[in-house]
Design a protein around this nucleic acid. Structure first.
Length: 579
DNA sequence: GCCGTTTTCGGCCCGACTGTTTTCAGTCG
């Protein structure tokens, strides 16, 4: 069983116990364990084999025993027995917004409903309103929630949400003069790869006026909810946006709170409690009722004796412990990026010329740009033959005479073919300045096969980086079956770098595997994979993903100067060729 | 069910909003 399968079962156990009305801390324990397993970045079997399951945060003797049973037998008796008490179909009712454990239990016990479809039918026929505690409004709300489920209101990508949020902030500032501070909060500020809804935060002395202005923005199609501190709207494009407006004096606690994550906040509040403080989005309260307010976010952490923690780290993945012991990473920043190692031109499937891509990279302040057009076997992308590659080299050399502060490097995005062979012979690769090798075809191979392909590329001394290693396309395609744990191990041995591809639908490697890779000394390359000049700017999303993976500048290949980059490649080729 | 710069037992975050409520439960983040 995979990490995800085990985590899914533990999470569902949490849901079942919740519906049964079990001790809520037991429920939280199962959910926390599931979350931490999803965050591992390595196969849970490794912990099991070495007898270290209980080293995973949130996993104690009881859950460790259950994991062991699942890994040994592929089943879990406890889970199967629970299904006699709560059918899995009842758990699925929790997917409906505004239906929680109590309502799910009610619908099941009173009406025998065990699927979203059955609840929908019951709601339409008007029987839900007869249940104790439910009325006509609740019935309508449940129906609306089910329609939202049907619309498959999937999470949207970071690259979609970020510009929308910036636009909304600008529009809000233009509409209202009563705004003291504005910020993006929530998972968007933490730069998660996908976003459920956009959270905006405003500090103002006139909240009602600000919220009226917000509800009146042209992009807003519907006001879903409005209270004295919070307004939720739906935009014409279907996105949900929550706006909170708070007093400027409470800005620090509010920004901290609404940035989350929820799990991070819970940890922080537990820490506060140990210090005799109660933390809310408004203030710290002491037992005697006196308050400590924070106008700046850093003051919140300072009050608890912590350094400020960057939003990208706030996922309860050990950041508070690291902050307590003074071991927070010094995350890589955009100024440290000296170049981009993966970009396409009209020589293959890009939209722009070599010169246009180069000038765009130079305008970003880069020292170098690697042109990595596709190679011959990727026909759909007009992949280059060795001959075409030689012609391109002449053009690149000619262009390089233009600048003394910038260098265009010739690379390629080398096909790792379905049988594991590479698309060029070594003598062709040796003439290039840089090589990114990627899988684009036969992504549905079984784990052994596709992992062997990537390992083969890793062991070629001329391959510098493995491009978008998992092959995922967020919301469209699951990652391939490639065993990233094995790939990362091998990269640590060969000295090959792994890419964090910055295309918003990819963000691949993801944050969890970045952390695992850098922890083993593997260099990562944060690349735009741009197919037009504007695409270079997507690199900020890859950078954020790397930061979420605790990456420091020294972990990132493209913080190197051009000389360092060349030396790195030469040294690695020499070492790997002798190995 | 997990966990420990007070604890191996007794804790485990905090508030807004909604609906069906005569004082609060449920859900959400």
């Amino acid at each position: 069983m995979t990490n995800r399968e085990i985590a899914d079962i533990l999470k569902r156990i949490g849901d079942m116990l919740d519906i049964l009305g079990e001790n809520r801390f037991k429920v939280i324990a199962y959910r926390r364990a599931a979350e931490n397993i999803m965050n591992l970045g390595r196969d849970i079997r490794e912990y099991w084999v070495s007898g270290n399951l209980e080293e995973i945060p949130g996993i104690g003797a009881a859950i460790a025993e259950k994991i062991e049973e699942m890994l040994t037998t592929g089943r879990l008796e406890f889970y199967e027995r629970l299904q006699d008490d709560v059918p899995v179909g009842v758990v699925s009712l929790l997917e409906i917004p505004d239906v929680g454990p109590k309502t799910a239990k009610l619908l099941w016990e009173e009406l025998g409903l065990q699927s979203v479809a059955e609840v929908e039918a019951a709601a339409r026929s008007g029987v839900l309103r007869s249940l104790p505690g439910l009325g006509a409004k609740s019935e309508a709300k449940i129906l609306a929630g089910i329609e939202a489920v049907h619309r498959r209101s999937d999470r949207i990508s970071l690259g979609t949400a970020w510009p929308v949020a910036q636009d909304l902030l600008q529009a809000l500032l233009a509409e209202s003069s009563e705004i003291v501070e504005v910020a993006v909060a929530g998972s968007l500020r933490r730069m998660r790869s996908t976003i459920g809804d956009i959270d905006l935060l405003v500090a103002s002395e006139a909240p009602a006026a600000v919220m009226r202005a917000f509800a009146g923005l042209a992009r807003v199609s519907e006001v879903m909810l409005s209270g004295s501190t919070k307004t939720s709207v739906r935009l014409h494009n279907g996105l949900q946006v929550d706006l909170r407006v708070l007093d400027p004096g409470h800005w620090g606690t509010a920004l901290q709170y609404f940035t989350g994550s929820q799990a991070h906040n819970v940890r922080l509040r537990e820490l506060a409690q140990k210090q005799g403080l109660s933390l809310s989005e408004y203030a710290f309260k002491r037992d005697d009722g006196s308050e400590v307010t924070c106008a700046q976010e850093a003051e919140v952490y300072q009050t608890l004796g912590l350094p400020w923690i960057p939003p990208e780290l706030r996922e309860d993945r050990g950041e508070i412990q690291a902050a307590l012991s003074g071991e927070l990473p010094r995350l890589v920043e955009s100024q440290a990026i000296r170049g981009d190692l993966h970009a396409h031109t009209d020589w293959s499937d890009g939209a722009a010329t070599l010169a246009d891509m180069a000038e765009a990279a130079r305008a970003l302040g880069y020292q170098y740009l690697v042109i990595s057009d596709h190679t011959q076997s990727l026909g759909v992308a007009q992949g280059l033959t060795p001959d075409r590659l030689a012609e391109q080299r002449a053009d690149i050399d000619a262009l390089n005479a233009r600048w003394d502060d910038f260098t265009l490097l010739q690379g390629c995005e080398l096909e790792i073919k379905a049988d594991g062979d590479l698309d060029f012979e070594d003598d062709v690769l040796a003439r290039l300045d840089f090589v990114v090798a990627s899988v684009h075809t036969s992504l549905r191979q079984d784990p052994e096969q596709i992992t062997r392909r990537v390992l083969n590329a890793l062991h070629n001394p001329y391959v510098d980086v493995i491009g978008h290693p998992s092959g995922r396309l967020l919301g469209q395609r699951e990652e391939s079956a490639v065993d990233l744990g094995t790939v990362i191990q091998a990269a640590a041995e060969t000295g090959t770098a792994l890419e964090v591809n910055s295309i918003p639908a990819r963000l691949d490697l993801d944050d969890i595997h970045v952390r695992r890779a850098t922890g083993l000394g593997v260099k990562i390359a944060i690349n735009s994979d741009a197919h037009h000049p504007g695409g270079l700017e997507n690199l900020s999303y890859g950078l954020a993903t790397a930061r979420r993976g605790w990456a420091e500048a020294t972990d990132v290949l493209n913080t190197f100067t051009l000389d360092e980059l060349r030396a790195w490649r030469q040294t690695r080729i020499a070492r790997q060729s002798n190995a």
